[in-house]
Design a protein around this nucleic acid. Structure first.
Length: 892
DNA sequence: ACCGCCGGGTGCC
DNA sequence: ACCGCCGGGTGCC
């Protein structure tokens, strides 16, 4: 049944003003079944996810005492010192100023007394104030109870709000009476008593943040567990730990963090909320291991080992002698870590009894089911559970703006990558039923889907289907795993809802970067995990986020306790039993300075002084940013010069182009675009600053993304000019590179010493279709004799998952703006499966824009290290930083 | 609510 | 009495 859907709609119904209107005095009795069901859904995600004001920047206005009235008419109860939420109810038929008071579960407790409500309504409606309440005593009164109200808002609005309240005869007390600090013993189980109200400095806070995920004492997470035999890859110790931890979490019956039993009630120690029903255990969490530590493998092991009810997936006959090693696939290297020698049988005792006689050949089940497949059914449990691995769309995002056909291919590719992992790690004899729920042909039949063991899909598919009779939202999943879960940290409301409303008890988030920008990232994840009461952003904010950002040590301790409870994270440098998680070979980065030849230097100098003059003029006029495209053009040309003078079209060459016949011109331009595309450097489009997407060349011989330049022409018409050289451009003069012309295999690469020297090489860049990319990677990683020994790789090509361990030497021909992009690129070969020391050489042209880029890189590194916890830079600060960067780059 | 408030009943001492 | 006082009805917004 469509349980998830009904939950959602039931909530909407309760929220609607009509309901309240019909529920006149004494008759307000929501159907208990639904009401209970919506309890953990009270986080009206619509409100919280869709552009709500920035809660971080709120300041304290003051406090006052108010009264909650009408208690008799509502079912919501509170305890003394319990937090309550205030919510405007403009549609109340008796008073359009009405302000509802709800308990932590979202159940209405009463209303704010009307005189005060009349004062609050206008400022609440105009979002000048955010109201929070705590009932200090009298929680069990019959008719009315007191409430301590605190007022929060933007600093700019403070005076207005105070004046407004004064005009209504209410004076706010400016002293914050530590409702946020006086939590009793909070860290569930730590018993260390109340924390002294010690304020942390911004610096201390930052340090604590940095350590938050790195410094988890993993004493309780060192237990190892062997996966079932069906996993043919030998797990590394840290993966066995992950497995043990995840299994124990899934089978846990512990109370969730910050909940404790008191008598026959369950108390939340953060909000002082209590209820009879035991809050659901958190049967999942965050696997936040660093990239490359094998999160997906750990989860696959989990799925098979702890499939359902603490039992492994019933498997067919499995082999045990021949083991794959834990190298990352078809690497030409033999596996590292000396695991090849480990041939002892793995598996656990439970597994044997769970073996099932039926063997199935088919590993991937297609869209329709036939009678013979009905035979598989008896194996399934009653609830017909399945597992969904929601994959990310990063590839698609990297290609945004590409034709839809291209996009689709790449997304499927991402899912295929996960499918590949299953194939790689799970024995072929295991009749694991995997279904890829993706594309127009996907089965909309929940029954056939729920007969799968694993369903793979993408975030966008989940979102697209949501509310559209989606089978994904009808199935009660065995577990839902969000791969690269951080990609939904800043989602739109629909995506959040669609993903959060997937129905599963076991809920996992895989991410290498659990917190990237702020604590909000974490909230999004916690909300997905359905950790009460954090599904509602208000409670997260009041109990954790605000105390922490205000420097409250108790808040930080709670945060630490929480993270420790639900997260497992190891970095590449973490140690297991005194040994590093990954004993990767060394990685050395060298910078090789390059001198330009006299001739090149001459060209460079003239172009540099020309560029400096232009940019210098913009500086004087204060119009650097309005001419940003021109500035970038200068920089791009300087960078191109550092690579090779051929890359730059000088003014003279475009002059000569003019004299050519149209046919000659066309040929020259095609040659030129081929040169750019095949140069091996990651050519950027000067408009979007990203890799070239659907590249075209202008008559003035500049290459841009087609959509980018078309937009420029459109917006500047009828006199559009080339963003790089300001010569006239016309839509009908744009030339595309003929498809067959950038067939990579036979490309002549003018930049490298490689073809002439007889090297076999391949290439990978953003302009290549997905199929070519896969071929390139496969041929490169292959151990065959004629396999290429060199890959020309563009900095931005491919996803983070790309495995190029066949390479142990990296030559970076031109530096990237963003050091993280370089690092990521290096990590593609310096990862699990690499056996040799990796030597990286960054070529940097002496006395050039490239050298200055290094300076910017180190600044960016510092910034990235300190970005967390501090406020995000404002637009003007960003501009300021940009301008500074430009100054550094051109030595002005 | 063991209150406040409302409005009808009532009206010397 | 266009008041005061009494006591019953009543009760969020």
């Amino acid at each position: 049944m469509s349980w998830g859907f009904m939950r959602g709609s039931a909530w909407k119904f309760l929220q609607s003003p009509q309901y309240t209107r019909s529920g006149s005095r004494g008759t307000f009795a929501p159907p208990n079944l639904f009401y209970d069901d919506v309890q953990d859904n009270v986080s009206s995600l619509d409100d919280s996810a869709s552009g709500e004001e920035d809660l971080d920047s709120l300041v304290f206005f003051g406090m006052m005492k108010g009264n909650v009235v009408g208690l008799r008419y509502y079912a919501g109860v509170v305890n003394n010192n319990e937090m309550v939420a205030l919510q405007r109810e403009p549609s109340n038929p008796y008073d359009r100023n009405a302000v509802k008071v709800n308990n932590v579960n979202g159940e209405q407790v009463g209303h704010i007394k009307k005189e005060l409500a009349a004062a609050l309504a206008p400022i609440m409606d105009r979002k000048l104030v955010r109201m929070e309440g705590v009932v200090p005593y009298g929680a069990h009164n019959v008719f009315t109870m007191p409430v301590n109200l605190s007022f929060w808002g933007k600093d700019d609005d403070k005076k207005g709000v105070l004046d407004h309240m004064k005009a209504h005869g209410y004076k706010l007390d400016p002293v914050l009476k530590s409702s946020g600090k006086s939590f009793p013993s909070l860290d569930a189980g730590s018993g260390s008593g109340a924390s002294p109200p010690v304020q942390l400095t911004v610096e201390q806070l930052k340090t604590e943040f940095d350590k938050l995920f790195e410094d988890l004492k993993e004493d309780d997470k060192t237990q190892e567990m062997e996966p079932v035999k069906g996993i043919q890859t030998v797990l590394l110790p840290h993966q066995k730990q992950a497995l043990a931890w995840m299994v124990s979490r899934e089978n846990s019956t512990e109370l969730p963090p910050f909940w404790e039993q008191r008598g026959n009630l369950y108390y939340n120690t953060l909000t002082n909320f209590a209820e009879k029903e035991r809050p659901e255990s958190i049967r999942g969490g965050i696997l936040a291991d660093d990239m490359g530590l094998g999160k997906t493998l750990s989860v696959i092991a989990l799925i098979l080992t702890n499939f359902h009810d603490g039992q492994p997936l019933p498997t067919g006959k499995v082999r045990s002698e021949k083991q794959k090693t834990n190298s990352a696939g078809k690497s030409r290297n033999t596996a590292s870590q000396g695991q090849c020698s480990e041939t002892r049988e793995i598996g656990n005792s439970q597994e044997a009894s769970a073996t099932v006689s039926k063997r199935q050949k088919a590993r991937k089940v297609k869209y329709d089911f036939n009678d013979s497949e009905e035979e598989w059914l008896p194996r399934k449990t009653k609830s017909s559970p399945a597992c969904s691995l929601v994959d990310d769309d990063q590839f698609a995002m990297a290609l945004s703006g590409a034709s839809s056909g291209k996009k689709k291919k790449s997304k499927t590719k991402i899912i295929d990558k996960t499918t590949d992992q299953f194939e790689q790690h799970v024995q072929a004899e295991v009749d694991l039923k995997i279904y890829v729920y993706y594309g127009p042909e996907r089965s909309k039949d929940p029954n056939s889907l729920s007969q799968q063991d694993v369903v793979l899909t993408s975030y966008s598919t989940v979102t697209h289907d949501y509310g559209n009779n989606s089978p994904l939202h009808k199935i009660k999943w065995l577990r839902v795993v969000l791969d690269e879960g951080h990609t939904i940290r800043n989602p739109n409301a629909k995506q959040t809802k669609a993903i959060h409303s997937l129905d599963a008890v076991r809920r996992w988030v895989l991410t290498g970067t659990p917190i990237q920008n702020s604590l909000k990232d974490l909230w999004s994840i916690l909300s997905f995990l359905k950790l009460k009461p954090f599904t509602d952003r208000e409670w997260w904010h009041r109990t954790i986020q605000r105390p922490v950002t205000m420097g409250d040590q108790g808040g930080l301790r709670r945060l630490q306790a929480l993270v420790k409870n639900i997260t497992l994270r190891r970095t590449k440098t973490s140690k297991v039993k005194g040994k590093p998680v990954l004993e990767l070979p060394e990685r050395k980065v060298y910078i090789q300075y390059v001198q330009l030849s006299t001739e090149e230097r001459q060209i460079y100098q003239s172009m540099q002084s020309e560029g400096k003059a232009i940019i210098g003029r913009y500086f004087n006029e204060g119009t650097v940013l309005t001419h940003y495209a021109d500035v970038l053009a200068v920089l791009v040309r300087l960078r191109q010069l550092c690579c090779h003078p051929h890359l730059v079209s000088s003014g003279s060459s475009s002059a000569s182009l003019k004299e050519a016949t149209p046919e000659e011109l066309r040929e020259k331009l095609i040659n030129k675009i081929k040169l750019v595309l095949n140069s091996g450097s990651d050519e950027e489009c000067a408009i979007c600053l990203d890799s070239l997407n659907n590249p075209i060349i202008t008559r003035c011989a500049h290459v841009f993304c087609k959509p980018c330049i078309c937009q420029v022409i459109h917006s500047e018409k009828p006199n559009a000019k080339c963003p790089l050289c300001r010569s006239e451009i016309h839509l009908e003069h744009l030339l595309e590179c003929p498809e067959e012309e950038f067939d990579s295999e036979t490309v002549h690469c003018p930049n490298f010493v490689c073809r002439e020297s007889g090297f076999i090489f391949t290439r990978l860049d953003g302009s290549m279709p997905q199929k070519k990319r896969t071929e390139a990677i496969q041929s490169f990683q292959s151990t065959a004799d004629d396999s290429p020994t060199i890959m020309l790789l563009s900095l931005k090509a491919g996803g983070v998952g790309l495995n190029l361990t066949a390479a142990s030497r990296v030559f970076l021909m031109d530096p990237a703006w963003n050091p993280a992009a370089e690092e990521q690129c290096f990590d593609r070969c310096h990862r699990l499966g690499q056996t040799k020391d990796v030597i990286i050489t960054k070529y940097v042209v002496k006395d050039s824009v490239e050298e200055n880029m290094l300076k910017i890189q180190s600044k960016k590194r510092e910034l990235a290290a300190g970005a967390f916890g501090t406020k995000k830079p404002s637009a003007s600060e960003m501009k300021e930083a940009r301008i500074k960067e430009i100054r550094t780059l051109v030595d002005l």
